[in-house]
Structures are given as structure tokens and as C-alpha cells.
Design a protein around this nucleic acid. Structure first.
Lengths: 107, 107
DNA sequence: AAGTTATGTGACCTAAAGGTCACATGTCAA
DNA sequence: TTGACATGTGACCTTTAGGTCACATAACTT
């Protein structure tokens, strides 16, 4: 399994995406803290974090008996750059910003 | 299965990512043309294209008995925006451009 | 040292995804 | 209208991924 494959496989599961959402909101959390946000057993969460770590989407630092988890945006950006060139990016961002503006005025 | 799930599941397979690569290089191809680039049977390729289409990563247009396939960059950009805010984007792009420059000088 | 807390490993079961095939429909061209 | 071409459907099999558990190691606290 190559690097790309690891990243995309890691992103394919909703629980793992939710873990990334949690870390996007606030970095540096432990396994136990992340587990408390999910319905799943600790073993399940640990397995998912391992997959994210092996894909380099999450990087970790040990602090005593705790292991702190951080979101790494680099692989995400590389996914983007694979299929969106600079020219297309300009159009797509403009389109999505327009869409966001319209939805704001609706509410 | 929600929209997000369809996109990420679609991206999880290497054959489907290769199909996106082909369409990124040149749009508007038929099933038969795409099939000729792969080792797989026509049925396999068709199944993969269906998954990509249901995820809205590929959009199609019929022309007689042919079906033309086009890459849609919108879902890819939305993946990016989910975990990379404007501030982080600035840092990450700068870092990746630096990395690209260095690797260019190596060769 | 002893109890508690935090994380790690391997086996196991079940559900889902990838791939092929027989068969089928629709369209073009002579 | 007959033959060739392009795409579509459902069943089937095999591999892989998600989830839980029994068991285990390591570090903080008193």
C-alpha cells in the first residue's frame, strides 16, 4: 500500500473523518478524550487513530503516559492539488464563495 | 449513505483515482476509451465510473450511443475546505511550493 | 509497592467492496 | 433490417475493512 492509498483509505471512514473534525476544532487531544466523544469502544477509536497516523493525517507527541494527537493538513492539500490546477482553483473558489453568500442571505 | 460518504468512498479506490487522473489530463472520454487504458474488464470500469458519477466527482453527457465523462472539481475543493481554513491554506501552500522548488533544483 | 489510569496487541466475527460473467437494451451504418 | 458497436443489469464469489474482546505493558499517585 503506497502513501496515497493510505490517505484515501483513511478518509473513507466516517468515524475517522469525525476524528479529524474534532482535531480541526481543537488540536492536541488524547485517545481517552477523543473516545469520550464517540459511541465506540476504546479499541475501535484506537484502531482508527492508528490508520490516520499511518496516513500522516494525524501526527502525535508523547507526554508521559499520554499521547497527544494533532491534525496535519499537508496530505489534504496534496489531494486538492492532484485534480485542481491553479486556473481551475480560481473558478471553483469563486463559485463556492458565491454559493456561501447566497445561503447566508437565505437564513 | 450521505453525499460526503459517497465522495470519500469513491476516492478510496486506486482504479477510480486513476480514472480521475485520466479525465484531469483530458475530459469528455467514453467508457470504451477509458477501458482501453486499464487492465480490467469493461464491467469493472463501468462499475467504477458509476460510483464516481453517484459521488458527483464525474458528470456525464450522452451523445448518441456514447456517454462522455467529465471531471467535476467541486467536491474535491469541498474536501479541502473542510479541514483547511484560509489561514492554514496560506502556510501549507507556501510550504508545498518551497518543497517543489527544492526538488526541481535537485534534478 | 499497590492501585489507578492511559495506551497497546492479537485473535476473532460480521458486513461491505472489488471483480467477473451471462445476458440485455439501445444506436449507428450499410 | 441485419450486423456491429456502445452501454447497462443482476447474480455470484473472494478479499478486505470495521468492530469488540481478552490480555498486556507502561506511567502517574499516594
Amino acid at each position: 500500500m503506497d502513501d496515497d492509498d493510505r490517505v484515501f483509505k483513511a478518509l473513507a471512514d466516517p468515524t475517522r473523518r469525525f476524528l479529524l473534525d474534532l482535531l480541526f476544532a481543537r488540536d492536541g487531544r488524547t485517545l481517552t478524550e477523543l473516545e469520550s466523544e464517540l459511541e465506540m469502544s476504546r479499541f475501535g477509536v484506537m484502531k482508527h487513530l492508528k490508520v490516520l497516523e499511518e496516513a500522516d493525517l494525524v501526527v502525535t507527541r508523547r507526554a508521559g503516559r499520554e499521547k497527544l494527537h494533532f491534525l496535519n493538513p499537508i496530505p489534504i492539500r496534496q489531494v486538492h492539488d492532484r485534480w485542481i490546477d491553479k486556473y481551475t482553483e480560481h473558478h471553483v473558489t469563486a463559485l463556492l464563495e458565491l454559493k456561501a453568500d447566497l445561503e447566508e442571505n437565505e437564513s
